[in-house]
Write a protein that binds this DNA or RNA. Structure first.
Lengths: 190, 190
DNA sequence: CGATGATGGGACGTCTATGTCCCAAAATCA
DNA sequence: TGATTTTGGGACATAGACGTCCCATCATCG
């Protein structure tokens, strides 16, 4: 048989290798070709096509993989544990730690077609919005700014933090720390 | 003659139309084809090629155009007028106002090849760095954070602000205002 | 060892973006 | 008006990415 079907260990590993390669390469250069992905995965282009019939299939699967990495990083473990501020803080630190996955998911709005812009990542923009509004009610976030602005800044800082890790500028834990601090208090002293 | 040479008013106008179209289109979708640019400029693809022999030429010229728009927005008029904080504030507001130009220049690091990452936009990262260090000395910015982090956050907020204008979420002046506030003080109240 | 599975790699055909040429129509200018 | 400039648009050629097939080779498992 030509196309992999059962779930042997080998297949799982190659599939995973391709997905991780796609995540790493596309996070840095969305215009990279399937050939580039195959190279990074140390796999032939033929094999890549065996696992993912067309580009779209790989993009989708990589998106799933990124969301998975997202959850592994604990991005969903924020359910009503403490204050909204604590939840936002944890969410931010975890997202930063997710690194490439974040960059892949958020750097280009056109990546997944137009439905993605309206859709919600990880869980939901609506959910995120509620969290922000709650933080505003708690007095942790200024009440006189549009929640959408806060959300934009949030994602933006996640992105900057993830990129710093990516570039080797900051160690993983420092990135989350400084992103959180900057989010809540800007670049002001003390 | 087939290729435009002298500097008639007509030529200047079409050239400008093409550049502005490229700026607007590529700021939103870097993968847009030359045909898309030509459409946006209400010009035939032939004409586009008459003005810019190949894609690279247009990319370069658009970069120049963006830098020009940058200066028009007052992004360079910050020379030692007041405190470092005041300069950073003005720089941020002006950059946000530059809109598409900012997005074009900073959204994709690969846009202008690898030399751009090391290079400096508008004027110089070195200059920017000195400004940040000066602000730290003045006590306007926390002294215990890496200036590079501050710079990243700065550009990031410029980007978010510019996108808000672009998306119509915020009016031009509000965007600069809120970007500045967020930069210095985060999303904290008061 | 033999069978089945998985991979590598080449050969094609297709499609899109790009770049070049050329000529007729439209606009501009003297 | 007549000449010159500028433009539109089609016809081509080219290059790169994609997707499909096919077959030899290597690994794995019985």
């Amino acid at each position: 048989m030509s196309t992999p079907q059962a779930d042997s260990g080998v297949r799982h590993r190659t599939r995973r290798a391709i997905l991780d390669a796609a995540l790493a390469v596309w996070a840095r250069d969305w215009n990279a070709s399937l050939g580039d992905i195959a190279d990074q995965a140390a796999v032939s282009r033929s094999t890549l096509h065996r696992y993912f019939p067309d580009r779209q299939a790989l993009v989708e699967a990589t998106k799933e993989r990124a969301l998975e990495a997202f959850e592994e990083a604990g991005c969903d473990a924020t359910s009503g544990s403490g204050t909204a501020r604590e939840e936002l803080d944890a969410l931010l630190r975890n997202a930063v730690a997710a690194g490439d996955a974040v960059i892949y998911l958020y750097s280009d709005p056109h990546r997944f077609g137009d439905e993605w812009a309206a859709e919600d990542p990880g869980s939901d923009h609506t959910e995120m919005r509620e969290l922000v509004v709650r933080a505003q009610a708690e007095g942790a976030i200024a009440a006189d700014v549009d929640p959408d602005w806060v959300i934009s800044v949030f994602y933006s800082l996640v992105y900057v933090g993830a990129e710093s890790i990516n570039a080797g500028t900051l160690p993983r834990h420092r990135a989350g720390e400084i992103s959180s601090r900057t989010f809540f208090g800007g670049v002001a002293p003390g």
